[in-house]
Structures are given as structure tokens and as C-alpha cells.
């Protein structure tokens, strides 16, 4: 049943798939970001309470959601890499980690910039912010571990194990931090209560989430292509690719 997937374990085929998929994601990302940012910044109505500062939501929420999502997908890829011993999945883990870390950093920066006018401080030890900070540490751990190894094969496998250990911990960390927060000081976050977000704000938000996801996909695919090329540097197909299809060797 899954046989059609098997060819994609080959590096060359995976590289081609990356090339085929990238333009679609790129188009959606560019259009989505242009529409989403203009709509969010200029056309969406101001919040009655937070005024124009709430416009940060259009990048804060997508980056927060997607940094979590990227971690989950990284862990799933790591699981695939470890169980079925597929090297391309290992490379994908390494491709996702820096992108996830960048997006987690964006979520933290935007969170701080939103917190300053709303709560009066740049940083609150709020459950979500703390979880996001720890998530960033976990990402940095995966990246640092990968770069610490000389042998890139071992590095990939070690990073996969760490990604899987991390994903077991993320929910525990999240709930422990939430619980710790409520025990100590009570929640200070002023969020939009549930579905109270108006459709005039919801639509640009959804567009931004989609565009962000596609942009991340583009960057991940680019990095995956780089990793594949780096590993397969000496293979004939890479040489053919470089010398423009001619059989050079």
C-alpha cells in the first residue's frame, strides 16, 4: 500500500520532489503574506480595547502556532528516520530545526513587543511565553547537537533522538508551567475570549497563518535540498545537475 512512497527515500527523487513542490508553496506564501499583512496592518478594524497594538497578532499567533507545529513535525520526521532508517527524514529534521527556532524567536520577540504596551513589561513569566522560551531552547539543543558531531551520519541520528525526547517533554513542560503559573500569581494574559474574535480580524489571521506555513515550507525545502546536496556531493546525479544535464564525468 505504501509502496509508492518508497522511491522518495532516494536522495535524487526527494530533491526533485522538493523542486516540484517549492514553487506552489512560494506562490501561496508571497500572495498570502502580501494580502495578509496589508489586510492586517491597514484594513482590519482596530480592537476596541487594545487599539492598533493588537495588529501584532497577525504575526504573533501564526509564529506561535507554527513553531509548535514545526516541532511536532520535526519529531514525527525523527521518528520515521529512526524506525525506518530513512536518511532523507534525518536530513529533514536538520532542515526543520533552524526554521522552527527562527519562528519561535519571532513569537517571543513579537510577544514581548505586544506585552510592553499591554501589560507594561517586556517579559511576563506567563505560561505560554515560558513554554515558548523552553521550546526555543529545545530547538537550539537539536541544532547545537547536530553541529557538535564531526560525523554527520551520527549527528543526524543523535538529533533525531533528542527531537523525540523533546517532544515527549513539551506537553509535560507546558502543563507544568501552566500549573506553576496559576499557583503562583494567577493568569495575567488578556486574550480574546474564545470565539469572540470578529470575522473581520479572523480572516486576515487565517490568511497569515496559511502564508506563514507556506513560507516555512519553502525555507524548509530549500534547506532540505541543501542538506541532500551536501551529503550527495560526490554522486553523479549532483554532478550532472551542476553541469547542466550534460554527462560531465
Amino acid at each position: 500500500m505504501w509502496k509508492w512512497l518508497h522511491p522518495y527515500a532516494k536522495a535524487e527523487k526527494a530533491y526533485q520532489v522538493c523542486n516540484t513542490l517549492m514553487p506552489y508553496f512560494a506562490v501561496v506564501a508571497v500572495i498570502g503574506l502580501i494580502v495578509g499583512w496589508t489586510w492586517g496592518l491597514a484594513y482590519a478594524p482596530a480592537d476596541y480595547q487594545q487599539k492598533d497594538s493588537y495588529r501584532i497578532i497577525f504575526i504573533h499567533v501564526p509564529s506561535a502556532i507554527l513553531s509548535m507545529g514545526a516541532y511536532t513535525s520535526m519529531a514525527i520526521t525523527a521518528f520515521i528516520a529512526m524506525v525506518w532508517q530513512i536518511r532523507n527524514a534525518e536530513l529533514a529534521v536538520i532542515a526543520i530545526a533552524p526554521v522552527g527556532a527562527a519562528v519561535a524567536a519571532i513569537a517571543l520577540i513579537t510577544g514581548a513587543a505586544w506585552g510592553k504596551p499591554m501589560w507594561g513589561t517586556w517579559w511576563v513569566w506567563d505560561a505560554r511565553l515560558t513554554t515558548m522560551l523552553i521550546l526555543l531552547f529545545l530547538y537550539i539543543g537539536v541544532i547545537a547537537l547536530y553541529h557538535a558531531f564531526e560525523d554527520k551520519g551520527a549527528a543526524g541520528r543523535a538529533s533525531c533522538i533528542l527531537a523525540m525526547v523533546g517532544v515527549v517533554n513539551v506537553p509535560i513542560i507546558h502543563y507544568s508551567v501552566e500549573w506553576w503559573n496559576t499557583l503562583h500569581q494567577g493568569s495575567t494574559i488578556t486574550k480574546f475570549d474564545g470565539s469572540a474574535i470578529d470575522s473581520s480580524m479572523l480572516y486576515p489571521l487565517l490568511i497569515n497563518i496559511l502564508a506563514f506555513a507556506c513560507l516555512m515550507a519553502v525555507i524548509v525545502l530549500m534547506r532540505l535540498k541543501n542538506e541532500i546536496l551536501e551529503r550527495e556531493k560526490h554522486r553523479p546525479w549532483v554532478r550532472n545537475l551542476v553541469s547542466g544535464g550534460k554527462n560531465a564525468v
Binding site: 523552553i134 539543543g141 557538535a148 543523535a158 533528542l162 517533554n169
Partner: peptide, 22 residues
């Protein structure tokens, strides 16, 4: 994870301390 590395010490704390938080 870090046993085979030359300078594993600092990396070890980066990997492990976040997991200690709960």
C-alpha cells in the same frame, strides 16, 4: 548523546536543563 564529543560539557547542560524544568 554527548559521550563521543570532545567538548560535550556545555552542550550537555544545554540539552538537559530544559528537560529538567517539569
Amino acid at each position: 548523546l554527548t559521550v563521543g564529543l570532545q567538548k560535550g560539557g556545555v552542550l550537555l547542560s544545554l540539552l538537559v536543563l530544559p528537560l529538567y524544568i517539569p
